[in-house]
Design a protein around this nucleic acid. Structure first.
Length: 571
RNA sequence: CGGGGCGUAGCGCAGUCUGGUAGCGCACUUGGCUGGGGGCCAAGUGGUCGCAGGUUCAAAUCCUGCCGUCCCGACCA
């Protein structure tokens, strides 16, 4: 490709609307342009990268036994009504009507469509297992699109769906997909981690997210320093500590009229924050008729934070989680926030294991302006085992489950998520096959997503320097960048660069020839920005000795090499 | 959806408080100089000042409403 004929609009200045580095560089290097919030046009250079990502994914999916299909972006409402998701998806789904006033949506995902295909076309256990995938445009009307293509509304996703006769078959495919994802990300030369993930509202036990490590990542991942445990913060649990020892102090009241926060009480009493327990009140599941208060108490150690996803899963707690209103709390507890505690607690209560491990603790007295100290479980508050449940976010330094070392944090960009769907879609859509004995059985399903456009941004997050992008070779839009210095003035430069270009193209090397009549400084700056791995500079200075300058984008220094040696450097 | 910011030329911004001529840098066009890290000089092109309404002799500027967009918090590839 000749740069003089390529739409490659680079920006010298940072665009005002871009904050994260990958977004800035994608705009500056002329990979994308924004059309509207969360909607992006891919320019020629960006699209070349996107296609490379797709190709790697496609090759590895095929290698793993996936069968590629392509399903429509526009989907009829009827399918979504079958699974109840026409309602459940809410505003995230963009809906529309056709000329006959029939309801459609832009597909945010394709479980319904693939299950419909399956039930129409697959009828025998002999055809199982199967794993269909596509690389497709998805539309999700995000609350808050951000970070460029990292969280866009329209984006490209590789989504795969597998169907199985039994759990054992699913497990095999799940494991295969896990390894497939590892291969994909490894080929892209990314630093990544697979972590245990929350399974969301779909259920099932196993679920893994694949995170590309980057400080700008939206997710926190917790991993053990021994490397054997890794989980999304939403899911991560600490090793369960032993229950508290009986304690030595007697329980006593202490006036704390102006101390409403844990920190204030701790400093007033001269005790560490960990010795204080905090009591959070959340709304109860409205369908739980055994709980007239409509509230549930959750007890945490003072220095810990509630994990709202874990809390919303507790029996009798409203999901999604909602904190209780002040007024309701005062009515049920006889005291307001700041003086609450587990002693004589009038509503159902859950206690985090780390809170249950504290002896001689401090807590609110359920009486405004009063706390209790020297409190002990069992003696002062009876707890049964079902009430002790993990509901907090792990913190760095926690012991990992099973004693697998200490937990540390990293930031990650979620680029893949694999999980078990069970039979929720196949059952609600009556997708069945006949088994060996002629019985109709409902297959169990797996789902494997990977954010294709997001991967491009993630790659840049990991591969850039002060001057621009430093593409890993497998994803670079071109392999070789020939920079002809003053080619419009020097016939020698023009001839040499054209000859090398023709030779490289003939050898099948993806080559970009900077044949523009720009000054050298402009060419160098833009070449760094665009980040093509191999760079050859052809100028009169070197040509006198039959030499050109060769440099890897990732190297600091260039070397002089004979013109005829260039192609041997690449590949 | 709640909180905050911003909307003036393709991009980055000033001008708005205190109403009266729409401006700067980059980019773009033409000419010249220059020619190894976004160069210099000169002359140009390009703007319904987000939209609608209002106040006023007069609105980019004041008022009202709407729209767009970005950032921070609850969801997800």
């Amino acid at each position: 490709m000749r740069q003089s004929a390529l739409l490659l609009p680079t920006l010298k200045e940072d665009p005002a609307d871009a904050d994260v580095i990958s977004h800035r560089l994608m705009l500056r290097a002329g990979l994308i342009r924004q059309l509207a919030s969360g909607l992006y046009t891919w320019l020629p250079l960006g699209l070349r990268v996107l296609r490379k990502v797709e190709r790697i994914i496609r090759e590895e999916m095929d290698r793993s036994g996936g069968q590629e299909v392509s399903m429509p972006v526009v989907q009829p409402a009827e399918l979504w009504m079958e699974t109840g998701r026409w309602q459940k998806m809410g505003d995230e789904m963009l809906r529309m009507q056709d000329r006959h006033d029939r309801d459609f949506c832009l597909g945010p995902t394709h479980e319904e469509v693939i299950t419909d295909l399956f039930r129409r076309e697959v009828h025998s256990y002999k055809q199982l297992p199967v794993n269909f995938y596509q690389i497709q445009t998805k539309f999700r009307d995000e609350r808050r699109p951000r970070f460029g293509v990292m969280r866009a509304r329209e984006f490209t996703m590789k989504d795969a769906y597998s169907f199985h006769l039994d759990q054992a078959s699913f497990d095999v495919t799940y494991d295969e997909m896990y390894r497939c994802y590892e291969r994909i990300l490894t080929r892209m030369e990314l630093k990544f981690r697979a972590v245990q993930a929350d399974t969301g509202n779909i259920g099932g036990d196993i679920s893994h997210e694949f995170h590309v490590l980057a400080n700008s990542g939206e997710d926190t991942i917790a991993y053990s320093d021994t490397g054997t445990y890794a989980a999304n913060l939403e899911k991560a649990a600490a090793q369960r500590p032993d229950r508290a020892s009986p304690g030595t102090q007697t329980m006593s009241r202490v006036d704390t009229p102006n101390s409403k926060t844990i920190e204030a009480v701790a400093s007033l009493l001269g005790l560490p924050v960990e010795q204080n327990l905090k009591t959070l009140i959340v709304e109860a599941d409205p369908e739980d008729t055994d709980n007239p208060s409509g509230l549930v108490a959750i007890i945490l150690r003072g220095d810990h934070e509630l994990n709202e996803i874990k809390a919303a899963k507790l029996p009798g707690v409203r999901s999604p989680l909602a904190f209780a209103q002040e007024e309701a709390i005062t009515r049920a507890m006889g005291a307001s926030v700041g003086s609450l505690g587990p002693v004589n607690c009038a509503i159902p209560m859950f206690v985090d294991p780390s809170a249950a491990a504290v002896a001689d603790f401090v807590c609110g007295a359920n009486e405004d302006g009063v706390h209790l100290q020297g409190v002990n479980w069992q003696r002062d508050v009876v707890l049964d085992e079902q009430q002790i449940v993990d509901v907090r976010n792990v913190v760095e330094g926690d012991m990992a489950p099973g004693g697998q070392g200490k937990i540390q944090f990293l930031r990650g960009i979620e680029v893949g998520h694999i999980f078990q769907l069970g039979d929720s879609y196949s059952a609600s859509m009556q997708a069945t096959v006949l088994d060996h004995d002629g019985n109709s059985v409902t297959p169990t399903m797996g789902c494997y997503g990977m954010g294709v456009t997001r991967l491009v941004a993630a790659v840049i997050e990991q591969n850039h320097d002060d001057n621009g992008i430093t593409w890993p070779t497998p994803l670079a839009p071109f392999q070789l960048h020939i920079i002809a210095l003053n080619g419009h003035k020097s016939d020698a430069v023009k001839e040499a660069s054209e000859a090398l270009y023709a030779q490289a193209v003939a050898a099948g090397v993806e080559t970009l020839l900077d044949d523009r009549a720009e000054r050298p400084g402009v060419k160098f700056a833009e070449a760094d920005l665009v980040g093509i791995p191999h760079r050859v500079v052809i100028g009169d200075r070197g040509l006198k000795n039959g030499a050109v300058e060769y440099r890897l984008r990732s190297d600091a220094e260039a070397t002089e090499i004979p013109l005829q040696d260039v192609l041997s450097k690449i590949g």
